[in-house]
Design a protein around this nucleic acid. Sequence first.
DNA 1: CGCTCATTTGACAGAAATCAAAAGCGGTGG
DNA 2: CCACCGCTTTTGATTTCTGTCAAATGAGCG
Lengths: 227, 227
Amino acid sequence: MQELGRLSHLREFRKGQVIVAQGDDATIVGNVVTGVVKLTKMSVSGQQQIVGLLFPSDFFGRAFSDNSRFSYEAATDVSLCCIDRQAFESFLLRFPEVKHELLLTVLDELDATREWAAMTSAHTTMERIAVFLFILSKRSAGSYCENGTKSERTVIALPVGRRDIAAYLGTTPETLSRNIQTLVRKHVIRPLDANSFELLDSAGLVDHTSESRDDLEAMLGVAPRIR
Amino acid sequence: MQELGRLSHLREFRKGQVIVAQGDDATIVGNVVTGVVKLTKMSVSGQQQIVGLLFPSDFFGRAFSDNSRFSYEAATDVSLCCIDRQAFESFLLRFPEVKHELLLTVLDELDATREWAAMTSAHTTMERIAVFLFILSKRSAGSYCENGTKSERTVIALPVGRRDIAAYLGTTPETLSRNIQTLVRKHVIRPLDANSFELLDSAGLVDHTSESRDDLEAMLGVAPRIR
DNA sequence: CGCTCATTTGACAGAAATCAAAAGCGGTGG
DNA sequence: CCACCGCTTTTGATTTCTGTCAAATGAGCG
């Protein structure tokens, strides 16, 4: 672990900067320290699809492949703990335990991605949005409250702009906006400022997802990450 | 490899039989020898979502996890090369090279799943159907190659019923049927029997996907599999 | 203040789900 | 061989939803 620390270094990227471009040599890997990273893919028509959002502690980059099939782009200002990909790979060879952890992480990630894919393709737009908000509420709750009492205000902070969220959920900013306003009218959430809401009715939100709470929790980022 | 052969054994399942149930102890892993396996997930409402389809040479089961988050079900009569999960795991510990291969496989699978997810969430129904048919045409092209006769005719064999395909593509049997008939009317495909079509116009099919041929090929199962 | 960009709202057309019914297919048993 | 039954697939009519286009509102900033 100390050795991993020696090999890695902290780098900062401004919002909008491309960290690794699709098709490029993926020379670095690492994990997110602060901020949010967009995992994107350019379609033929030139519009970018959001494949995933990476939050602090999430791993980014593609080990054991010479070119990345996706782009990694700073969705906000971010700081990343970076390691040269080659160095990381040879490090893995010397520390099989870490490599084993990586395997477990990737297996979990595959499961989570499959759950997400099943969810997005089988649900209505409102359901997808509700699931997304639910996940965000849990993400942010993790940093604040250990007791789930309703006295705590649960804040849902949108990490990126509406356009990106809409692309991530496979819809448009307009439809996203309409559905959010519907939830506001139903007093499920309450706007705090442009990019954050208070969750007023957690059960109501779950109702809109048409998923069980168990399945929702399974979709949270669950894996213990490297470092 | 010989040792792996000793540990594994061939098992047959009839169409509809459940190989590993969601939530169950996943006691076996292995790969598909013949037939097609459905990877599914039950939603709260009781309807099953199709998360993936596994073809011959595809790996099934979940190593390093005590219970499976998905069900594995025989979509057709299948024969599987099965290994006890524990035995497989201890085998991996003794043969790091194989474990490395598994890691590469899972990484590729994660990429392919992400591409699939991006595709399904950002495309119209016709585009999803066209992509699915394209992938099937490539899949079956591979397995029929041994047939000696280099056939001009490319056969697309639907491995499961329309209901399952519709669920996989995030649509309904009705819409699926309408779009297939549209392709038939446009002479892109021609029905051979209830579950197979001849591909008449490969370029026309690609046109309907609104994807580049490169991206399509990236979505094929590409990884070299264990055993 | 005036500019730009992001978000919201409105009107509308198109696509897909739903509801309903007909046609095709495979079995079973007379 | 044929009639019957259950099931899947196809087709049709209708409604709902969502994307698109357009315009208004609001937020950040020099």
